[in-house]
Deep mutational scan, measured.
Amino acid sequence: TGEEYIAVGDFTAQQVGDLTFKKGEILLAIEKKPDGWWIAKDAKGNEGLVPRTYLEPYS
C-alpha cells in the first residue's frame, strides 16, 4: 500500500508508461523516485509514472 495524493492539475501521458489523470483524482503513490516522477495507481487500478509536482498529500 502507498500514500494517497490528490491531483492539483490535469496531466496527459507524454509517453508510454505515464499515467493520465485529472485534477481532483486521488492517486496512490507506489514508489517515490528521486527524479520527481513517481509510480502511482488510480482508482481504476491503472498504474504508471506521474510528475510529483501535480500531487499534494490527501488527508
Results as ranks from 00 to 15, higher is better:
Thr1Ser: 13
Ala40Gln: 00
Lys33Asn: 12
Glu4Tyr: 15
Thr20Gln: 07
Leu27Ala: 00
Ser59Val: 13
Asp10Gly: 06
Lys33Gln: 09
Pro57Val: 09
Leu49His: 09
Pro51Val: 03
Gly45Ser: 04
Asp18Ala: 13
Leu55Trp: 01
Asp35Arg: 03
Gln15Leu: 09
Leu55Ala: 01
Lys22Glu: 06
Gln14Val: 12
Phe11Asp: 00
Gln14Leu: 13
Lys44Trp: 15
Ile26Asn: 02
Lys44Gly: 09
Glu47Leu: 14
Ala29Tyr: 04
Leu55Lys: 01
Asn46Ser: 07
Lys41Asn: 03
Ser59Cys: 13
Glu3Cys: 14
Asp42Tyr: 01
Gly9Gln: 15
Asp42Phe: 02
Phe21Ser: 00
Lys22Ser: 08
Lys44Pro: 03
Ile39Tyr: 12
Gln15Phe: 10
Leu28Glu: 07
Phe21Ile: 10
Val16Met: 11
Ile39Ser: 05
Ile26Trp: 07
Val8Pro: 01
Glu56Asp: 07
Gln14Ile: 12
Ala29His: 02
Asn46Tyr: 08
Thr20Val: 04
Ala43Tyr: 09
Thr53Asp: 15
Tyr5Asn: 00
Ala29Asp: 00
Leu49Gln: 09
Gly24His: 05
Glu3Arg: 12
Arg52Cys: 15
Val8Met: 11
Lys23Val: 08
Leu19Tyr: 01
Lys32Arg: 09
Gly24Lys: 02
Ala40Thr: 04
Asp35His: 07
Asp42Lys: 02
Ile30Lys: 06
Leu19Glu: 00
Ala43Asp: 08
Leu49Cys: 12
Phe21Ala: 02
Gly36Cys: 07
Ala43Phe: 09
Arg52Met: 15
Asp35Ile: 03
Lys32Gly: 04
Thr53Arg: 13
Leu19Arg: 02
Pro51Arg: 08
Tyr58His: 09
Tyr58Ile: 10
Leu27Trp: 01
Ile6Asn: 02
Lys23Phe: 07
Ile30Gly: 02
Gly2Arg: 13
Gly17Ser: 06
Ala13Tyr: 03
Gly2Val: 13
Asp10Asn: 10
Glu31His: 12
Ala29Trp: 03
Trp37Ile: 07
Arg52Pro: 12
Gly24Val: 01
Lys44His: 13
Ala43Val: 10
Thr53Tyr: 11
Gly17Cys: 07
Phe11Gln: 02
Ala43Leu: 11
Glu25Phe: 05
Thr53Asn: 13
Thr1Ile: 14
Thr1Leu: 13
Lys22Met: 09
Lys44Tyr: 14
Asn46Met: 08
Leu55Ser: 00
Arg52Asn: 12
Ser59Gln: 12
Gln14Lys: 12
Gln14Ala: 10
Phe21Gly: 00
Ala40His: 01
Arg52Trp: 13
Phe11Glu: 00
Gln14His: 10
Tyr5Thr: 00
Ala29Met: 12
Ala29Thr: 08
Ala29Ile: 15
Lys33Phe: 12
Pro51Trp: 10
Leu27Cys: 02
Gly24Trp: 06
Leu19His: 01
Tyr58Asn: 07
Lys22Phe: 09
Asp10Met: 04
Pro51Thr: 03
Asp10Gln: 04
Pro34Met: 11
Leu27Ile: 07
Ile6Gly: 01
Tyr54Asp: 04
Gly24Cys: 08
Asp10Ile: 03
Glu4Asp: 06
Phe11Pro: 01
Gln15Cys: 15
Gly36Ile: 04
Leu19Gly: 01
Thr20Tyr: 04
Asp35Val: 03
Pro57His: 08
Thr53His: 14
Arg52Glu: 14
Ile6Leu: 08
Ala40Tyr: 04
Tyr5His: 04
Gln14Asp: 08
Ile39Lys: 09
Thr1Ala: 13
Ile26Cys: 07
Ala43Ser: 14
Glu56Leu: 12
Glu3Met: 13
Tyr5Lys: 00
Pro57Ala: 09
Asp10Lys: 03
Asp42Asn: 14
Lys22Pro: 02
Tyr58Leu: 11
Asn46Lys: 09
Tyr5Ser: 00
Leu27Asn: 00
Glu31Val: 14
Glu3Ile: 11
Ser59Pro: 11
Ile30Ser: 03
Val8Lys: 10
Glu47Phe: 14
Gln14Glu: 10
Phe11Gly: 01
Val16Trp: 10
Gly45Leu: 03
Ala40Leu: 10
Phe21Gln: 00
Ala29Glu: 02
Gly48Phe: 04
Thr1Arg: 14
Asn46Gln: 10
Glu25Tyr: 06
Trp38Thr: 02
Ala7Ser: 06
Ala13Asp: 02
Leu19Ile: 04
Val16Arg: 11
Gly17His: 06
Ile26Arg: 07
Trp38Cys: 03
Gly48Pro: 00
Asp42Gly: 03
Lys44Arg: 13
Gly17Thr: 07
Asp18Cys: 15
Glu25Asp: 15
Tyr58Pro: 04
Glu4Met: 15
Ile39Phe: 11
Glu31Asn: 11
Lys23Tyr: 07
Ala13Ile: 03
Asn46Thr: 08
Leu19Thr: 01
Tyr5Arg: 01
Val8Ser: 07
Leu28Ala: 05
Gly45Glu: 04
Ile26Ser: 03
Leu28Met: 11
Val8Cys: 12
Gln15Gly: 11
Ile39Gly: 02
Glu3Gln: 13
Gly45Lys: 03
Val16Pro: 15
Ile26Val: 09
Tyr58Gly: 05
Thr1Gly: 13
Lys32Asn: 03
Leu28Ser: 07
Ile6Ala: 04
Ala29Pro: 06
Gly2Trp: 15
Asp10Thr: 07
Thr20Ser: 15
Phe21Cys: 04
Ala29Cys: 14
Phe11Arg: 07
Asp10Phe: 05
Ile6Thr: 05
Leu49Lys: 13
Ala13Gln: 05
Gln15Ala: 12
Lys32Glu: 07
Glu3Phe: 11
Gly17Pro: 03
Gly9Glu: 15
Lys41Pro: 00
Tyr58Asp: 03
Thr1Lys: 13
Glu25Arg: 02
Ala13Lys: 05
Glu3Val: 11
Tyr5Ile: 01
Thr53Phe: 11
Thr1His: 14
Asp10Ala: 07
Leu55Pro: 02
Gly45Val: 00
Trp38Ala: 02
Trp37Ala: 04
Pro34Val: 10
Ile30Asn: 02
Leu49Ala: 09
Val50Thr: 03
Pro51Lys: 08
Thr53Ile: 14
Asp35Ala: 05
Gly36Thr: 04
Asp42Glu: 01
Phe21Trp: 02
Glu56Lys: 13
Gly2Ile: 13
Gly24Arg: 03
Gln14Ser: 11
Gly2Cys: 14
Leu55Tyr: 02
Thr12Phe: 12
Phe21Pro: 00
Tyr58Glu: 04
Asp10Ser: 10
Glu47Pro: 03
Gly9Ser: 15
Val8Leu: 13
Phe11Met: 04
